[in-house]
């Protein structure tokens, strides 16, 4: 059973002109089996939340805590967090030339489990995970993300999610740039991941479109580095109809 708790999280982004505060106290608890949609306009800090939790070197957690099943993550290295059970599906998956998908996945699985996967079942598992995402077998021989289309990169992220089966996952705008067919394929994968009922999921998105295929337990509205409103599915419907404008204005008024 996996619970991800984010408490009063403050994060700076490190820029050439010095650190700049992006997250200004984020609180969120994702219990086992819950899907939390985090919605907000561009520049509100949604991706910063994802990167900071995963341990990206350009972001610095200045205060607050993130725990997974009670284990504090913020003092850990990127790979230690992953081995603790955290997964980030990235908005812009990185190309790693010369490293095959097969080698990458096997190395990751070995690192997570502390032992190499059994070859016979593993090859089948990889083929199945890729097949589920409609990526054919030849992808396992290709370099990681190199020459992949935008949609293939996103589907490759979700193939990893299914294969590595972490305790808690953050999907950072996995839906953006996907056509409707790819969106369905990706949503099916995410639903299979959460179907076990004991995984925690943060779904960061700009659009409500993906929520037609993935049923959120909670919807959070993210403005200017904070969660400013929370609700159920109906909140997403409201955002679909009205946009973020009233929230953005309220946040601006609060600052002024």
């Amino acid at each position: 059973m996996s619970t991800l708790v984010i408490s009063d999280l403050h994060v700076d982004v490190l820029t050439e002109s010095g650190p700049k505060e992006i997250l200004k106290g984020v609180n969120l608890t994702a219990r086992p089996g819950e899907i939390h949609a985090i919605m907000g306009p561009n520049g509100s800090g949604k991706s910063t939340l994802a990167y900071a939790i995963a341990g990206h070197p350009n972001y610095k957690i200045t205060s607050g805590s993130v725990t997974l099943d009670g284990v504090e993550l913020t003092e850990m290295t990127v790979d230690e967090r992953a081995r603790e059970g955290l997964f980030l599906a990235m908005q812009y998956p990185v190309e790693v030339p010369g490293v095959s998908v097969a080698n990458f996945l096997r190395t990751a699985k070995t690192a997570l489990d502390g032992e190499a996967p059994k070859i016979r079942t593993w090859v089948k598992d990889v083929e199945k995970a890729l097949g589920n995402m409609q990526l054919d077998k030849t992808f396992s021989a290709r370099s990681v993300n190199e020459g992949f289309s935008g949609g293939e990169k996103k589907r490759h992220e979700i193939a990893q999610l299914e294969l590595l089966n972490p305790k808690a996952a953050i999907l950072d705008e996995t839906d953006s740039g996907l056509d409707i067919d790819a969106l369905r394929v990706v949503s099916d994968g995410v639903n299979r991941f959460t179907a076990s009922g004991d995984r925690a999921l943060l779904l960061i998105t700009h659009y409500t479109r993906i929520l037609r295929y993935i049923e959120p337990t909670f919807v959070h509205v993210f403005i200017d580095g904070r969660i400013v409103d929370e609700g159920g599915r109906e909140l997403a419907d409201k955002l679909e109809a009205e946009g973020y404008e009233s929230y953005v204005k309220a946040a601006a008024a609060a600052v002024a």
């Binding site: 992953a82 490293v99 990458f104 690192a111």
Partner: peptide, 22 residues
């Protein structure tokens, strides 16, 4: 590249090794 590989649980030294290998 290192962040991506490490975010999948791969240690820093192993990630470096993979990148140079590639």
């Amino acid at each position: 590249q290192l962040f991506y590989l490490r975010s999948r649980g791969i240690t820093e030294s192993e990630a470096r090794r993979l990148v140079v290998h590639g």
